[in-house]
Design a binder for these strands. Structure first.
Lengths: 186, 186
DNA sequence: GCTTTATGTTTCGATTCGATACTTTATAAT
DNA sequence: ATTATAAAGTATCGAATCGAAACATAAAGC
């Protein structure tokens, strides 16, 4: 397949989602960045719930992120807590209101419908397909992949559960499904 | 495949592209909306090069689109021309400067690299795969699909070339590859 | 101890964005 | 025909975003 096709297809999907997202946002009186931040926080793990990670993830400046977080904090969507060991670092967490908002704003209908339509066609193994597309994209975007923990180079299965090879810490099943800023593609 | 997987995969791709785009934009002193507009204008056909189409495509209000176009016009990226038959409508076109900017700002490297990586793996027919994913998404997003002209319900092949079944006008090969706001999924 | 680096915050000005009201043109109704 | 209604854009205003730069504080290097 020529590059143009992949390029166009993915760009189209992306534009489609962007548009949907914008509509959702105005509906709930939010900005798309807010939604992206809430979404990220709901998916990232404990190593990645900092303003700095958000800065990298969203590709914005620190100042802007700081401002936006201030606003989200005022709306009681997120809360801050300084790290116990490194007192420069702030850990963010979704508050109940934030979770509720995210739940409402997620484009679930769109995807539900799409999935239903997909199910009718008898396509096999298109998830490995998409996975490989995404992985390829992540590899290209060298800097940071922000991949799922369990697909990481450092992710290891020990006798008594999961383990992060980088931090040497034990990981719960829950942790292993979330996005990590330290993620390295296999 | 469960819905979650599709959802996550595509969301991830989208987030990735958004981030890349943001970086590109600040690099060139633009806003991501500007780039999206330039991109759209470079891909849309003559039925779709109006502010109203942009409004639908981007999911913004008419006022905002009008403002942004004013700015792009001032930068000599786009130009306006009132329609000859319906004097209410305005047709937009990319000026050389706009094309040049778009050329520079497009995330070609990212996709080139991704395509190279994909080429190494021996995956067959993943384009039909992605096409069907995208089509499904477009079907879900009932309102307007903004699909490629040649994949449209109204697209017909006559003895002497292509034809739009809606407007009854002849279409060039070039036209048939572009995005149309009237697009209907088959 | 001093410098350098990293994480966040603050401030400021330019820009965006949505809401509302408005103009102009086309289409529909009577 | 004349009026009414709808559609495409524009203009204006105020709130909010965003990036740049300067700043503060904490950790790390030498």
């Amino acid at each position: 397949m020529e590059k143009v096709t992949v390029f166009d297809l993915i760009e189209r999907m992306s534009a489609l989602l962007r548009s949907e997202e914008r509509k959702k946002c105005t509906e709930f009186g939010l900005q798309s960045v807010h939604l992206q931040i809430l979404d990220y926080l709901s998916r990232c793990n404990k190593y990645s719930d900092t303003p700095a990670a958000l800065t990298n993830y969203l590709g914005m400046t620190r100042g802007t992120v700081s401002q936006t977080l201030l606003l989200l904090e005022k709306k009681a969507y997120v809360s801050k807590a300084t790290d116990s060991t490194d007192r420069r670092v702030v850990h963010l967490s979704l508050l109940p209101d934030g979770k509720a908002m995210l739940q409402q704003a997620r484009q679930t209908e769109l995807f539900d419908q799409a999935a239903d339509l997909l199910a009718r066609d008898k396509l096999s193994s298109y998830d490995e397909m998409l996975v490989s597309v995404l992985t390829a994209l992540q590899k290209s975007n060298k800097s940071q992949s922000f991949g799922i923990c369990k697909t990481c180079l450092y992710f290891t299965v020990s006798q008594d559960g999961y383990l992060c090879g980088l931090t040497r810490e034990a990981l719960t099943e829950d942790d292993s499904g979330k996005i990590c800023q330290e993620h390295r593609v296999l």
